[in-house]
């Protein structure tokens, strides 16, 4: 077993065990979406129109809030020290942790999205497209959020710092995610351009996120 898969599997296993909080993000997502109709009224037509936007906002908040503990737990028990002493470049270790995090918190969001879409009266065919955009876009959220998680650990500060740092940087993902979803559902703009840009954002953050996060962890050294 390589160090990369060992770390990936350990993190997945940890978040599936008791106290790991793998499904916490999905639960938060459900609650946020449930709250929306109370704020904007139960008008099904309106909900259907802004449904994709609600789902995207909910997914954005859920995936960022779950990131808070990504490195903090390893720092608390001394594991982070040993992760830095591995043969594997820290960037790859960070990538493995991020992938595990996306699999256990991002992917459940994508999976429950169609169910929540039904509650928002988004029609079934359209829901497929929205889910596709979430599948393509949530990795970008995780990898951008990774940088914030690393920075808040380097400063030994958790809580609200991470969303304050990271949410402005997620504006492009939100724009293209919702645009692609809306293009697929109501048109008239084509689905292709925003969706490909969304994929590009995910791929670019897949590379840049771990590099910046590893730099933040290294520079967090005293």
């Amino acid at each position: 077993m390589t160090a990369f898969t060992a770390l990936l599997l350990r993190d997945i296993r940890l978040s599936l065990r008791i106290g790991g909080g793998a499904l916490m993000g999905a639960l938060f997502f459900l609650i946020v979406v449930t709250l929306m109709p109370f704020a904007i009224g139960p008008d099904l037509n309106l909900l259907a129109r802004i449904g994709p936007a609600i789902l995207w906002l909910g997914a954005l908040l859920a995936s960022l809030l779950a990131l808070d503990r990504l490195f903090a737990m390893d720092q608390d028990d001394g594991s982070l020290d040993l992760l830095m002493m591995g043969r594997m470049p820290l960037e790859l270790a960070v990538l493995a942790k991020a992938l595990a995090h996306w699999i256990t918190t991002g992917l459940p969001l994508v999976i429950v999205a169609p169910v929540l879409g039904l509650m928002l009266n988004v029609e079934l065919r359209a829901m497929g497209w929205v889910t596709l955009t979430l599948l393509a876009g949530t990795p970008a959220l995780t990898f951008i959020g990774l940088v914030g998680a690393a920075l808040s650990v380097a400063l030994r500060r958790g809580g609200l710092l991470l969303p304050v740092l990271i949410l402005p940087l997620t504006v492009p993902v939100l724009i293209f995610g919702v645009a692609a979803a809306n293009a697929a559902i109501v048109g008239p703009a084509p689905f292709g351009p925003p969706f490909t840009i969304l994929c590009a954002l995910s791929l670019a953050s897949l590379v840049l996120g771990p590099i910046a996060a590893a730099a933040a962890l290294r520079h967090g050294l005293e």
Binding site: V147, L151, A154, L155, L165, A216, H219, G220, E222
Partner: peptide
Amino acid sequence: GRGARAAAIL
């Protein structure tokens, strides 16, 4: 120093 490096990365 720590804050400066974190802010530089951000």
